[in-house]
């Protein structure tokens, strides 16, 4: 392992970490602006030009607030909860291919931290781990509303993970690989997987909404029933971590959806662009395209939040178990049959 390799990966990790934090930060601003737009208001406009410094002001406020740990809370777990939520939100980006490899001189730099051959399953594992932050925090608060919310979050995540896993299986049948790099490269140009797996994409997206606890599935933080949800007892930056983790999760799931179904950094006409712009600018344009797709998904997340009302809990479970799972299984069966017929058994 040469030292240049270590430096290269370290720089890549630092950049990706920084980008996820900045995007999460400005997602809070974007969310308020989108909400304002959809409700015919102005939104934040005091801090800086068009309210651009609002996230900084919010962050500063979070840091400055008094920190309260309830007397009867389980102290260590109370502190581990938000940290775990943040950690699981951040490590998901490690396997996402951000662009095709850049060639500088004779050195090929892949724009992906690591290409493990079970990349999809890694993402899936991180997602399933994400619920621990909520559960531990909710239980450690020693508050019945927090506990109820933690239990809601756990059962919601477990239920929707099944449908999500099943929709991924249909995708794997099409791509024939679990490595995210190979999946993206298989979608060269406009051969995006969403064209072959439209039902799988819709299933995956609905499950992604549920896994990130976003509206219309934000029952763990249902204010009218549970005060604030699992973070009722939290204050200061610990609360900030929970809120922030949600936005990072949203960014990661947008990136995963763009990678799996919308071609990642592929776009129609990319061969011509790559041939004419050289080995550094070309891949970077691909990265730009990838981020445009991610932003489109993030906007979609917000659009849905301010359009569709929250589900009732029994409706959520009904949708997960009786609609999405059978649909996902049917999708697998149909996909396998079609592939078997095309390949002539």
């Amino acid at each position: 392992m040469d030292i240049a390799f270590v430096i290269e990966k370290f720089v890549l990790v630092a950049i990706i970490f920084g980008i996820s934090l900045v995007i999460a930060m400005y997602s809070t601003y974007a969310e308020r602006k989108v909400a304002a737009f959809l409700q015919d208001r102005l939104g934040p406009d005091r801090a800086g030009p068009a309210g651009m410094f609002q996230p900084l002001a919010d962050g500063l406020k979070m840091f400055m607030k008094e920190e309260i740990i309830p007397t009867n809370a389980s102290k260590w777990l109370f502190m581990i909860g938000p940290g775990l939520a943040m950690l699981t939100a951040c490590i998901g980006t490690a396997v996402i291919p951000w662009g095709s490899a850049i060639t500088v001189g004779d050195r090929v730099i892949p724009l992906q931290v690591t290409d493990i051959n079970v990349g999809i399953l890694y993402i899936f594992g991180v997602v399933s781990l994400g619920v621990y932050g909520v559960m531990i925090g909710g239980w450690a608060s020693n508050n019945k509303y927090s506990l109820l919310s933690a239990i809601r979050a756990a059962s919601q995540n477990i239920s929707y993970e099944i449908a999500m896993g099943l929709s991924i299986i249909a995708l794997l049948l099409v791509t024939g690989s679990m490595s995210l790099k190979e999946i993206v490269e298989g979608q060269h140009g406009w051969h995006w997987n969403v064209l072959y797996q439209p039902v799988g994409f819709i299933l995956f997206m609905v499950c992604a909404f549920a896994e990130t606890n976003r509206a219309p599935f934000d029952l763990p933080e249902c204010e009218t029933e549970l005060i604030g949800g699992y973070h009722t007892e939290y204050s200061s930056m610990k609360l900030g971590f929970y809120l922030f983790a949600e936005y990072i999760n949203m960014f990661v799931s947008a990136a995963v959806m763009a990678t799996l179904y919308f071609g990642g950094y592929n776009y129609p006409g990319m061969d011509w662009v790559l041939a004419n712009t050289g080995p550094v600018i070309g891949p970077l344009i691909g990265v730009g395209v990838f981020f445009i797709k991610i932003f489109a998904f993030i906007f979609f997340f917000m659009w849905v939040r301010w359009t569709i009302p929250r589900f009732r809990y029994d409706q959520l479970m009904h949708l997960g178990w009786k609609v999405l799972i059978p649909l996902a299984i049917a999708n697998i069966v149909v996909t396998s049959v079609v592939i078997a017929v095309i390949e002539g058994f």
Binding site: L121, V127, W139
Partner: peptide
């Protein structure tokens, strides 16, 4: 054994233990 590792991660850590925790918290 990468596959086994990640399946252990998802199934045991991510699913079964969540249910354990779920019941104990209740």
């Amino acid at each position: 054994a990468q596959f086994l590792a990640v399946v252990n991660f998802i199934v045991y850590m991510g699913a079964i233990m969540v249910l354990f925790l779920f019941v104990l918290m209740l």
